[in-house]
Amino acid sequence: MMLNKTEIILSLIKNDNKIFERATEIRNKHCGNEAHIRGVIHFSNYCISDCLYCGLRKSNKEMKRFRMDEETIIKIAGEIAQKGIKTIVLQSGEDPFFTREKICSIIRQIKKNMM
C-alpha cells in the first residue's frame, strides 16, 4: 500500500493510523520488530549556518564551541563498536574544518577498525 502526499497529510490531520501502520510494515520488513541502538558521536558544534531553530547557529555567542580531533572520533567509534553497537552516527554543525576528504578518511578508518 503506497500513500501519496495528500493521503499522508489527511492521515495526520484526521489522526488516522494508516501512516503508522505503513511505517510499521516497512520497519518490520527491513529491520524486524526490534529496537536498534545507535551510537551518536557529536564531534563539533561549530557551524557556519545561522538557522534560527538551532542552538548551534553561528550567532549563538553563548555556546562554548568544541571540535574533536580525528583520532578522538575514531577512538570513540571503536569504544562504541566494542559495546556491540553496530550503527554509529557522526553529527556536527556545518563545520568547514571537516572537509569531505577528512570525513571520508574518518569513516574509512572507523569501518576498517570495525571489521
Score class of each variant (00 low, 15 high):
residue 38 R to G: 07
residue 38 R to M: 09
residue 41 I to S: 03
residue 102 K to P: 11
residue 56 L to V: 02
residue 58 K to M: 00
residue 7 E to T: 05
residue 10 L to W: 07
residue 48 I to E: 00
residue 80 I to N: 13
residue 81 A to T: 08
residue 29 K to V: 01
residue 87 T to L: 11
residue 38 R to W: 07
residue 53 Y to P: 02
residue 30 H to M: 04
residue 77 A to N: 03
residue 92 S to T: 08
residue 87 T to I: 04
residue 31 C to H: 13
residue 47 C to D: 01
residue 13 I to D: 12
residue 90 L to V: 05
residue 93 G to M: 07
residue 29 K to Y: 13
residue 15 N to P: 01
residue 37 I to Y: 14
residue 30 H to A: 02
residue 31 C to L: 06
residue 58 K to P: 00
residue 72 T to D: 14
residue 90 L to M: 08
residue 11 S to F: 03
residue 83 K to E: 12
residue 25 E to V: 04
residue 40 V to M: 12
residue 81 A to L: 13
residue 101 E to M: 15
residue 99 T to M: 14
residue 68 M to D: 02
residue 114 M to G: 08
residue 49 S to C: 02
residue 2 M to A: 11
residue 105 S to W: 15
residue 91 Q to D: 05
residue 7 E to W: 08
residue 41 I to M: 09
residue 79 E to P: 03
residue 1 M to F: 14
residue 86 K to C: 14
residue 12 L to A: 13
residue 36 H to F: 03
residue 12 L to G: 12
residue 94 E to V: 10
residue 83 K to L: 10
residue 98 F to P: 06
residue 94 E to I: 04
residue 110 I to L: 12
residue 93 G to D: 10
residue 91 Q to T: 07
residue 101 E to R: 13
residue 54 C to R: 00
residue 95 D to R: 08
residue 74 I to F: 15
residue 96 P to W: 00
residue 79 E to W: 06
residue 25 E to D: 12
residue 24 T to S: 12
residue 84 G to C: 10
residue 22 R to F: 11
residue 78 G to S: 03
residue 42 H to R: 11
residue 16 D to L: 03
residue 45 N to K: 10
residue 106 I to Q: 06
residue 43 F to L: 06
residue 52 L to W: 00
residue 50 D to L: 01
residue 61 K to N: 10
residue 34 E to P: 03
residue 28 N to W: 04
residue 110 I to E: 13
residue 108 R to M: 05
residue 76 I to M: 12
residue 72 T to G: 06
residue 10 L to M: 14
residue 7 E to P: 05
residue 87 T to M: 09
residue 68 M to V: 02
residue 11 S to V: 01
residue 90 L to C: 09
residue 6 T to G: 07
residue 51 C to W: 01
residue 56 L to G: 01
residue 26 I to Q: 11
residue 2 M to L: 11
residue 24 T to A: 15
residue 88 I to C: 11
residue 107 I to T: 14
residue 114 M to L: 15
residue 43 F to T: 02
residue 81 A to P: 00
residue 13 I to Q: 12
residue 85 I to E: 10
residue 37 I to V: 06
residue 60 N to I: 00
